[in-house]
Amino acid sequence: MTTFYLAENGAPVDVDLHQLVIAGWAGRVQAAIDEHIEELKEIGVTPPSETPLFYRVAANQLTVAPEIQVLGEQTSGEVEVVLIGTDQGTLVSIGSDHTDREAEAWSVAHSKQVCAKPVGAQTWRLEQVIDHWDELQMASYATIDGEEQLYQEGPVTGLLHPTELLRSFGLDKPELVSGQAMLCGTLPVIGELRPADAFRVVLKDPVTGLELQHRYAIKTLPVIA
């Protein structure tokens, strides 16, 4: 059981998560998706069979803990809006599709499974923001050698609107079933992919002036042969 909290009043919402989905290649502009696919092909990443593509990940990989453990030095986070199906409707949080970049070169699906997916416990109701969804802004910050650096920043408009994303997933309205969670796509990295000691993700709503954020530390375990 995972407990989230409604930012509006602090009320807890318990969710028995049974399905975790990572929406990949979820951009709105196909030309930009195609360009990114070509870039990744050059470093050995196999192109997706279709776009968007919905990767299944073990539900217990979602965590609201303040620290994750990873194997080896070649992992990094990426900010993503998270939708969470509950018996009180679909909630919105902010999280990170933390990924093993070495594994990504030979299997994107496997790289998604290798690392935990940190998600903030504070949430909004989707119905509170869906009418002005395209006003939302995402950002991430990587702490490297003790200094926090801006890592990603931009509007959600580069990614599929929840209505369209969930329609592609096979749902006819923007509501997840209770127990489902979906990470909804990410933004380009400023500079290059790089590991960090900690990662902070932020979702801002300029209309209300509110924001969600989550920070997690990354503990690297040694690779023993």
Rank of each mutant, 00 (worst) to 15 (best):
H161A: 06
A116H: 06
L71I: 13
S76F: 07
T123D: 02
S96K: 11
V119N: 00
W106D: 13
G85M: 03
G85C: 10
A59W: 04
M138R: 01
P118K: 03
G154I: 12
T86M: 07
A116I: 02
E42H: 08
G158M: 13
P162S: 09
E127I: 11
Q149P: 06
S76Q: 01
V82R: 01
V70T: 13
T143D: 06
D87I: 15
T51K: 03
S96M: 07
E147C: 00
P47G: 07
M138S: 05
L159K: 09
K117E: 00
E127W: 02
A105G: 01
T63Y: 06
P162F: 08
S49Y: 00
I68E: 01
D87P: 04
L62M: 15
A139L: 04
I94N: 12
Q128N: 15
E78G: 10
G120S: 05
P52V: 07
K112T: 05
V82M: 09
E73S: 15
E127V: 14
T63S: 13
T46A: 14
G154K: 08
I68S: 01
N60I: 02
Y55L: 12
T51L: 12
M138V: 03
V79D: 05
Y151Q: 10
E78Y: 02
S49K: 14
G158R: 04
Y55V: 13
L71R: 02
V129F: 04
E50T: 08
D97T: 01
T163W: 00
V79C: 14
L160R: 10
C115M: 03
E39Q: 15
Q137K: 12
I68M: 10
E104R: 10
P47I: 01
A59E: 02
H98Q: 11
Q149Y: 03
V114T: 11
H161Y: 06
K41P: 04
V119K: 00
L165F: 05
E135Y: 04
L62I: 12
T123W: 05
Q122E: 14
E104L: 14
D100A: 11
P66N: 14
G146F: 00
L160V: 09
I84W: 03
G72C: 09
S93P: 09
I43Q: 08
G146K: 09
P52C: 07
E164P: 00
T86W: 05
L62Q: 12
Q128K: 13
R125D: 09
E104G: 11
D100L: 07
V70K: 05
K112L: 05
A65S: 13
V82Q: 04
L40H: 00
G120W: 00
T90Y: 06
Q149I: 08
Q113I: 04
P48N: 07
L53V: 13
S93D: 07
A116N: 09
S93L: 02
E164L: 12
Q137V: 08
A139S: 15
H98F: 09
L165M: 11
V119M: 05
L83K: 06
L126R: 13
E39K: 15
L165C: 04
L159W: 04
K112Q: 08
E42K: 15
S107F: 08
V108A: 11
R56G: 05
